[in-house]
């Protein structure tokens, strides 16, 4: 178990120079995630334009793994539809739980594979992803209710 397996250069780069750090005024999705075990907290903001993620940012405090993972996530989901973003969440979580996933789809995120050897840190890596997933789900179920209401009114 070498430390380099956990702290790959790309992870340290995202930790020390996080991408998309900040908030979005008027975000379509705002969601908070927390890891009660270590007190790490993080918020994710998503702006949608024409059904795609046109902007995504995060703020929070936490360890290098949770912060780097959040930074990499924002890089990767920009431009995706919510459906595509959730599919990526599924693949990322699958990878973190030891399943084989196509490398080309995860790109730089593969660097977080090393975290699997450190079981207590897996939750750090998935913190932002679990939060995003929850935010999208809440957004879609709220929209579903609005649409169902609109449909029933039409009928």
């Amino acid at each position: 178990m070498a430390l380099d397996d956990l702290y790959r250069e790309v992870i340290l780069d995202h930790y020390t120079r996080p991408r998309n750090k900040g908030t979005i005024d008027g975000a379509d999705i705002t969601v908070e995630g927390a890891n009660p075990l270590c007190g790490d907290e993080l918020s994710v903001y998503v702006k949608l334009t024409g059904g795609r993620i046109s902007d995504v940012r995060f703020v929070g405090r936490g360890c290098s793994i949770s912060q780097a993972s959040a930074s990499m996530m924002t890089d990767q989901i920009k431009g995706k539809t919510l459906h595509e973003a959730r599919a990526l969440v599924g693949q990322f979580k699958a990878m973190m739980h030891g399943e084989e996933v196509p490398e080309e789809e995860l790109g730089d995120l593969m660097a977080l594979q090393g975290v699997r050897k450190f079981p207590v840190r897996i939750k750090c890596a998935t913190l932002a992803w679990v939060a995003l997933d929850q935010g999208v789900e809440e957004f879609e179920s709220a929209r579903g209710k609005v649409e169902a209401k609109a449909t029933s009114e039409v009928e």
């Binding site: 430390l3 956990l6 702290y7 270590c38 405090r61 360890c63 793994i65 840190r121």
Partner: peptide, 9 residues
Amino acid sequence: AHPHDVAQV
């Protein structure tokens, strides 16, 4: 460094 990272190192 975050405490978890310190402890890990």
